[in-house]
Design a binder for these strands. Sequence first.
DNA 1: AGGAGCTTCGT
DNA 2: CGAAGCTCC
Length: 673
Amino acid sequence: MSGGGCSIVWFRRDLRVEDNPALAAGVRAGAVIAVFIWAPEEEGPYYPGRVSRWWLKHSLSHLDSSLRSLGTSLVTKRSTDSVSSLLEVVKATGATQLFFNHLYDPLSLVRDHQAKEALTAQGIAVRSFNADLLYEPWDVNDAQGQPFATFAAFWEKCLSMPFDPDAPLLPPKRINSDTLVFEDESEKGSNALLARAWSPGWSNADKALTTFINGPLIEYSKNRRKADSATTSFLSPHLHFGEVSVRKVFHLVRIKQVSWANEGNKAGDESVNLFLKSIGLREYSRYMSFNHPYSHERPLLGHLKFFSWVVDEGYFKAWRQGRTGYPLVDAGMRELWATGWLHDRIRVVVSSFFVKVLQLPWRWGMKYFWDTLLDADLESDALGWQYISGTIPDGRAFDRIDNPQFEGYKFDPNGEYVRRWLPELARLPTEWIHHPWNAPESVLQAAGIELGSNYPFPIVRIDAAKCRLDEALSEMWQQEAASRAAIENGTEEGLGDSSDSAPIAFPPDIQMEEIPEPARNNLPTTARRYEDQMVPSMTTSLVRVEEEESSLELRNSAEESRAEVPRNANVNQEPRRDTLNQGVLQTVHNNNAFQQFNAAIALANAEDSTAESSSTSRRERDGGVVPVWSPPTSSYSEQLVGDENGIGTSSSYLQRHPQSHQIMNCRRLSQTG
DNA sequence: AGGAGCTTCGT
DNA sequence: CGAAGCTCC
């Protein structure tokens, strides 16, 4: 069987054997070569963070042993260019078919398209499948056939589609294989803390799912506000790596819901709705990424490009270290640092604080999440940060500032969460735990706290932040109006064009992380920066905070004086309703090219669906074309490879290619479509 | 009971 | 902002 007609199954973020349509197709077609290609440099600034790599490593070995028990094994290949690696595998094996499952992040859309073209050109039959979503993005449209622009409408549609999500496939009974071994990639050290708490791999994902469905799910609606997160599903990293199929989750949860509904269990029923909504948000994040492939680097609402962010690395650092002076925020940031995990509510708290109080550029925060979260997920995180920042049509109000003090008493009423992660506040009574700056001196003394010394004063006061925000917003509206006027007068090139909205570059210490090793002489700073990205044990994180004490002290006093925002700012100038709508309209308008593109995809899929044997209407949705648009003239990955040799380039990929790709794509699409 | 006015919350 | 939920007559 070697040589003749075997197929390659290209695993990526679908590290499971059950309900894996690409694998199933490979098995149906005969001998299978299961391949995983590790080419992190292709991800540019989104090189997976340490905890993500830790997870991946274990998940892959788990998958490998599953595949072995089915009669094959996982071939892993280190690469800087996935497409050429695929071609090498083809050459080495004489494979005649390639199967893989769709991804929807901007990079994968381009890369998968290239893979398809390159392999097809070699006479390889390429087919791809949906394994990550209930419905493909191009299948979910409004009455006019246009993509939705808000979540609620999108999700309502998903739940009332004329056809159900595909039923999960069973795992194959046996996989025939050709043997072929590539070098195994070796990842550096794991982390004891992580290993204790988490078990990567598809069978553990299944266990987590079962545990959740039979346990916390029924209370989900009641408990979801608690910061101590024993009631979440803990499925997100499993879902990110595709260790469990979202369709399986959906089906099992729905079954529970029906039985609870029959019993008249209102709370259980409601809990399922809420949980499914979070599945829906994940779904929506892919949908957004597909329809707006630049959403991880640019606000979707046009006017937001006129918002002037506070570019202050000191703020950024204090936030990362959990030294903002707001206990709930700091506790969250310490937990993130120590465990790579945060309850959803706390993610909202810390990111909202980041954007609204500190007014730092959201992409910095998103990048930090990317580097530190165990379930780091570009699409979900982009959606989350855009939501928090109010840069999508149904996002939070721009001018709303959440007060961590009040949120603290909501999500952590007894202060247990804060005390766990901020030992320096452990002895503070609950009454003051979320606002120590108001506590009487005697109370602080009794608790062993000296503000400004072992715990900081608030880095920015909420009322000052509110003032500064209102000011920035009214300035933004003015500029937006001015720009629109300029465009109407023809003084300026058309919409969405150019230069103007280059994203703010990541600060240097984040940039250091973007291109980790290529074993260069590590400056002392580099070493520290790199550590920033790692997940230390509890103790090291505390030690580290101690070490930083003195420099932070300076920072604090600096911020204190810095926060003198004019109190008399004319904040009454309400952003006018019509301008807001303009923003939305502009977004929608900008979508046209992608909508055309999507129509093209849908069409192509329909044509392609004649392809295969078992021609139920269900099958027809499989095996469609790769859902991508034409890449810009010079390819993404070429640019990134060039990047890697990167002579003294401290500037990031994004900086040098200010989101030009999607604009080019738009143009190309309107030409070709 | 019931509704004006206030707060909270939302992807 | 706008809907939903709350309070206070």
